[in-house]
Design a binder for these strands. Structure first.
Lengths: 337, 337
DNA sequence: ATGAAAGCGCTAACAA
DNA sequence: TTGTTAGCGCTTTCAT
């Protein structure tokens, strides 16, 4: 590794290692002269303190871990980016882990995370319901954890989510008010808290506007994009086809849109589509789609900010239940043609 | 941190810490009985060795760093994913860093990386031409580095790239052979090796097929999506508009496609578009676009594989010049309508 | 204002 | 086969 150490600097300057250490850490009990000499030599030799020695000695690493179920997903990707920006601004490093939607993998990461590699963790869970032994284990070890998006159901703590139900409600209301007679809901999983909330908002809008809702309109889709598209194509070919779509995930919105193109149905003139998405993708989506954009980056930075605040300020108890809502942004769009 | 240590295990079992350490590392000089006792207790207490102590002692961390210019970009994102899968399979951790296309940031990361945080580095450079002091510094410190995509021009080493020129040549040839009379090239920067190669392939195709090439057709675009789209819209409105587009970046392909939709020009009937992209996005792009897809995931895994091989096998010299090509996949598409 | 020395948790010589 | 001991590079009492 880097062969130049504090000891080496101390020898060169005829000082004790402790003095050099203090000088580098800008201790008040070191003379300005010595400080200058030390920092100058350190800069000249491009000295980098050994992070592992520091971590071992201080029992903290100035590193935060973030675990997401799918790092490739732009939403999580942007959350990581947002968290990283805050960490960097506060002198922390961020290490991102991918649980691949698998609780076992998540456990491995959590247990491996320890060994003192991180001071705290930001998590979006692979499974909100399942056993949370590994989370309790973190708590026992006094590793602060903050949850976002897919939050722990059976454990108290800070939880950052979006206003899923409200957004879904607004999007659905928009469709109904624009005159849609038959609106379908496309969801991925209503067992997750996120899925359940979006589904609830959809139902709520129908109830409040006094519109009948055929249970068959609540559609649960799979993860295979091709299959989803085929199912939707068949549906749009029928005469009884819907004239409104609320897609609870970006990929479902895209699948619906592509199915509509394939079946030569005009969007939004014949069928209106509202899709959940995230800020970055919102502008890339073709203009005829209305979007409910999650401020992913902001969510990441908010989590990191709160976590670092809790790390510094002992008065903040990160293990007490607290729910913070980062609101989505609904953008209705008309055709640009 | 984790309060349970080797010392604690040793006390519980009336053994020396060294014995416990050896048992946990499956040393041959420890009896099966002792091994079993130790591993059982370790598992029961969910003991995790302190990574920092280990790293400090062994002077290696079983961790690899990867630095990319833009982590959010799906291409780099997938490279990271590919590298991570290989690392994980080989017992290594991967830490991803974002240089934000900024050499200064990149330097900070490189220098900070040291302090013994990683054993080796995979990089795609923020700037291929600029001063490579930080890279030479890594070399002096015997930290192996492998480059991909945006590779070092003034430093020897292992370099993974795609067959940019050939792909670009094939894509352009496809357009010309399909009867396009005026093909434009949309590039982001021809100072990068990648940009230059793609531009070269475009020119080469024109030459080999004996087609005249108006220099005005070699367009250099900016990073602002909106501006790009507006420029292209204006161009497509003109009577002298091109009937073929080779987009050297995914975002440029999208900009062109959206401009074509806006100007109501049919793709691919009136204008054909070939766009560079990556495997994951290829299927998401609307079918009328032909794609040159880079196997980003494979590139990441190839880099990691070679690096780990070099780390294990002292016979492999990672500092000698070696260029490895991971070929792109060209998929011509006709309209699906 | 500076130095000496202990120790974070682990591994690896060297001893037994 | 197991134990003793030193030391990785750093910070932090405690002395001076």
């Amino acid at each position: 590794m880097s062969e130049i150490t504090i000891k080496y600097l101390a020898q060169k300057l005829n000082l004790a290692t402790s003095t050099v250490s203090r000088a580098l850490n800008d201790s008040h009990e070191i003379s300005e002269t010595t400080k200058r000499k030390v920092t100058e030599l350190a800069k000249a030799l491009n000295f980098q303190p050994n992070a592992y020695a520091k971590g071992l000695r201080q029992q903290k690493t100035k590193t935060i871990g973030i675990i997401v179920p799918d790092r490739v997903n732009p939403f999580f990707n942007l959350v990581i980016e947002g968290a990283e920006s805050i960490c960097r601004a506060n002198g922390y490093s961020l290490i991102a882990y991918n649980s691949y939607e698998d609780v076992e993998q998540e456990k491995k990461i959590v247990y491996g995370l320890l060994g003192g590699k991180v001071d705290a963790v930001i998590m979006s869970l692979a499974d909100e319901e399942k056993e949370a032994q590994h989370l309790e284990w973190l708590r026992e070890r006094n590793i602060p954890v903050i949850f976002f998006d897919r939050v722990a159901q059976h454990l108290e703590g800070f939880k950052f989510t979006t206003n899923d139900q409200e957004s879904s409600y607004l999007g659905t209301k928009h469709l109904l008010e624009k005159g849609c007679k038959k609106v379908i809901y496309l969801g991925l999983s209503h067992t997750s808290s996120v899925g359940a909330a979006r589904r609830e908002g959809f139902i709520q809008a129908h109830q409040e506007l006094g519109k009948a809702l055929d249970p068959a309109c609540l559609m649960e889709m799979g993860h295979n994009d091709k299959e989803n598209q085929e199912i939707l194509e068949k549906m749009f070919f029928k005469l009884t086809r819907p004239d409104g779509v609320l897609a609870a995930a970006e990929k479902l919105g895209l699948a619906a849109y592509r199915a509509l193109i394939k079946t030569r149905i005009k969007v939004p003139d014949q069928v209106r589509v509202v899709s959940f998405t995230n800020m970055q993708m919102a502008d890339l989506l073709n203009p005829p789609l209305s979007t409910i954009a999650q401020p992913a980056f902001d969510m990441g930075s908010a989590c990191a900010l709160e976590l670092i605040k809790g790390l510094k300020d002992k008065k903040v108890d990160l293990s007490e239940e607290k729910r913070i809502i980062i609101p989505s942004v609904f953008t209705p769009r008309e055709s640009s043609r």
